[in-house]
Design a protein around this nucleic acid. Structure first.
Length: 636
RNA sequence: GCCCAUGUAGCUCAGUCGGCAGAGCACAUCCUUGGUAAGGAUGAGGUCACCGGUUCGAUUCCGGUCAUGGGCUCCA
């Protein structure tokens, strides 16, 4: 008998036959196998194995394992729904990043109560523990089967499958069209939670029927599920919309308009601090700062190509003395005109223009979301005009700058994407080729790992997008670096070369934070509202024990304010415990307590309480100021 | 834009099977002058999102509008 080589979690085993191989795999937590690079059912292991090489066990610890596991769970969801609502028609039910979903066509919308009911039914199905059984049948036969069951969505899917043979998976009398693989049996699913129900178009096409989608997730054990649910709770707690209200950072008014942000004093001072930091670092990095208007003639946007390629995101024009004007969706044309205002020599390049430019873009009402998706926002925009031989070096400088700026906010790990030519584009293919390779070279010289997003570029050039990971490990897209060979052409941008002839520079658009609104929203969630000292709206709260301490408290606060510290006094007629709680709820970094003891020391010793701490330390006023300044300057 | 849900005091939410609108927090005034996460009392605060319909009477029922929330490129 041929032995079967099996590998599980990096360990090698030899099994005498398929029976033993299956047993080995299952005992060690595997529920599927990787054979010749493709995932397969454990039950498919035959005499001599199913591949030339060793069979690698797939367990929940890998992404592929999670995906298989959750896909199987989605089948159980469909099974449960069919038992409770036989009239529901099945669409698709894949695994997704953090779970799975299944789409159903059913006349009545699912309610929260239904979700609980369905979840209970799933538990029953799991308890029954029926095996997942694969059946390979001719495509025509499958179509006949699903047509007879009235499963017209499955029939539609089958019509598009090119293979002659398709596979079904049957579990406890419930059969579904499925490529597989699956876990061996329903009882392998240990912990399930249905999370939400939402509408979703059949095949994501808004012209087609709206289906009911049930989202859920599953885990290998109850503990991990609970951990994930706790994570969802934490996400909810940190929601920037909730914290924005609680900490009085910003608001969105129905009367002003959806997607338009009102920055309150607390949010505005944080934004101002970020802007000051941004400006001074840009000046250090060799950028020149610009300001540009909010509207420009429609003809300008025609020349730039936005009118043709970006109009669906632009607002309707307004008329000024018979001439149509348009509110700006981007800043680039203005920077080009600043460049063109005077003749440039090759010695002037690269020219780096930066602006915190506020733009307005139309977003469909259904996609607006707090600060993260808005209709008016301020880009931390810059345009670099460079010679072709300077591109790669410039991109490298920008990458360094991105990493420095994002690092300042505590974002230390990134996902980087290189996006190539999309379907809708301007410019020649050779020009696209050149610019794409410049980006690639810069990334590789810096040794940065990246993924390629084929066709994800802007209409005017390829780009590098950088997603940061926040303190909860969530990825957010902020930075972008886009090469543009097109606009210099359209606007006839030139420089005088060393050869005395005119040449065309290339343009690099880039943003580090993306949009200040969005970046701020991300920061709120990243810090859970507890901003580091340099950003905190109120840095120090001076709290008094009794009324007789008010004057002294004001004096101390005045001394701190004199040093540029953002300080507030709390002289209310309340007990110290209450005032400490108030400062804690507002997430104020430092509280200073003023009572008889401190007064008798004449300011020689302040009682200082740090956010989150439970003890106070005694420091002198100058000592405290130094401590604050050091912490502010370190931006930690 | 589309599907579903939601919209009641500044905030978080009860409530009215159609009959004078409620709590806690916050706010104001007073008492208390208290040493490390909520001292006590009193008070003010509402076109129940908006518009229309049904009704003797609508915050409640019906229709529409607006806004907010969960989703709508993960392909058997």
């Amino acid at each position: 008998m041929l032995s079967i080589k099996v590998e599980i979690e990096g360990k090698q085993f030899e099994a005498a036959g398929p029976e033993e191989a299956r047993k080995l795999l299952l005992e060690r937590g595997a529920f599927a196998v990787l054979a010749d690079g493709a995932a397969a059912d454990i039950s498919s292991i035959k005499e001599g194995g199913i591949s030339a090489g060793p069979l690698t066990g797939i367990s929940f610890s890998s992404d592929e394992g999670k995906s298989i596991y959750r896909h199987s769970t989605s089948h159980l969801l469909a099974h449960a729904v069919k038992e409770l609502f036989p009239e529901a028609r099945l669409a698709i039910g894949p695994a997704i990043e953090e779970g799975f979903y299944y789409d159903f066509d059913i006349d009545r919308p699912f309610t929260v109560e239904d979700l609980a009911l369905i979840e209970k039914k799933m538990e029953e199905i799991i308890k029954q523990g029926n095996p997942f059984v694969r059946k390979d049948i001719p495509r025509g036969e499958a179509m006949e089967l699903f047509r007879s069951m009235g499963e017209n969505y499955k029939v539609e899917l089958l019509e598009e499958i090119p293979d002659d043979t398709v596979s079904l998976y049957e579990e406890g009398g419930f059969a579904d069209l499925c490529r597989g693989p699956h876990v061996p049996s329903a009882k392998r699913i240990k912990a399930v939670k249905l999370l939400s129900v939402a509408g979703a178009y059949w095949r994501g096409d808004e012209k087609r029927k709206m289906l009911q989608r049930i989202y859920g997730t599953s885990f290998d054990n109850k503990k991990d599920l609970d951990k994930y649910l706790a994570f969802l709770e934490e996400v909810k707690k940190r929601d920037h919309r909730r914290l924005g209200k609680e900490l009085d950072l910003f608001s969105i008014s129905e009367d002003v308009g959806p997607g338009l942000i009102l920055w309150h004093p607390n949010g505005a001072i944080i934004r101002k601090t970020i802007e000051d930091f941004w400006r001074s670092e840009h000046l250090k990095a060799g950028y020149k700062l610009l300001y540009s208007p909010h509207i420009a003639k429609v003809d300008l946007w025609k020349q730039s190509g936005h009118w043709d390629f970006y109009r669906e995101n632009m607002y309707s024009p307004m008329e000024v003395e018979g001439v149509p004007y348009e509110i700006k969706p981007m800043n680039c044309p203005f920077h080009i005109f600043v460049y063109k205002n005077s003749l440039k020599s090759y010695r002037d390049l690269p020219v780096r223009y930066a602006e915190l430019g506020t733009v307005y873009r139309f977003e469909r009402s259904g996609v607006l979301h707090g600060l993260l998706r808005v209709r008016g926002f301020t880009q931390d925009d810059a345009h670099v005009f460079a010679r072709e031989d300077q591109i790669e070096d410039e991109v490298r400088r920008i990458l360094d700058f991105v990493i420095f700026v994002l690092g300042t906010f505590g974002f230390e790990s990134y996902d980087i994407y290189l996006s190539t030519r999309p379907e809708k584009y301007v410019g020649g293919e050779d020009v696209w080729e050149k610019s794409t390779s410049a980006l690639r070279m810069a990334l590789e010289h810096k040794g940065l790992a990246y993924q390629v997003d084929d066709g994800g570029g802007a209409f005017y050039g390829p780009k590098i997008d950088i997603k940061v990971k926040d303190s909860l490990g969530r990825a957010w897209q902020c930075s972008t670096i886009q090469v543009d060979f097109n606009n210099p052409e359209r606007f006839d941008v030139l420089y005088r070369g060393s050869d005395g002839k005119e040449h065309r520079p290339i343009m690099i658009h880039r943003a580090l934070m993306g949009s200040l609104e969005r970046f701020f929203g991300i920061l709120v969630e990243h810090y859970a509202g507890a901003f580091p000292l340099w950003l905190a709206p109120v840095q120090v709260a001076v709290l008094t024990i009794a009324e007789r301490h008010a004057e002294f408290a004001r004096k101390i606060a005045g001394e701190l304010a004199e040093e540029g510290i953002r300080v507030e006094t709390n002289l209310e007629n309340e007990k110290i415990g209450y005032k400490i709680r108030e400062a804690a709820v507002r997430k104020t970094p430092y509280s200073v307590i003023i009572g008889d003891k401190e007064m008798s020391e004449g300011g020689g010793s302040l009682s200082v309480r740090k956010r989150g701490g439970e003890e106070t330390v005694s420091v002198s006023v100058p000592g405290f100021i130094k401590l604050l300044k050091d912490e502010i300057n370190s931006r930690r």
